[in-house]
Amino acid sequence: MTVYLLCFILFLTGLYGVITRRNLIKIAISLSVMEFSTFLFLALVGYREGGVAPIVDTADPVKTYVDPLPQALVLTAIVIGLATTAMLMAVIIRIYRKYGTFDIREIKNLRG
């Protein structure tokens, strides 16, 4: 249960960063921290004590594998996370070229 709680605290750390920071790059980093905590949680849910990696050895069949379903899910999510991060950074660099700052308050003030 401790692990789940720590994982949740990691998520809250990312959320705190997203809410309180004014720098766009730091907001992007906090978003990826939140992503990572979710991946960790899903991997934790699928773990079984004494389980081995879900790769079948036909010569020596073992009975306990860890759950392959969350792993397949997280595999998809990691790649999508890379795509969103890359797109986020592209938007951020465009904003910097236009306004000359990463500060979200300044960007709001320069509207129009």
């Binding site: 991997a43 860890v66 792993q71 595999l75 990691i78 996370g81 890379l82 890359a86």
Partner: peptide, 20 residues
């Protein structure tokens, strides 16, 4: 956590993210 596939993908993705 016995997830080698995830570890491989994550190390590649993290490196690319860091470079970007």
């Amino acid at each position: 956590l016995q997830a080698p596939d995830l570890a491989i993908v994550q190390i590649v993705v993290e490196t690319i993210t860091l470079i970007i």
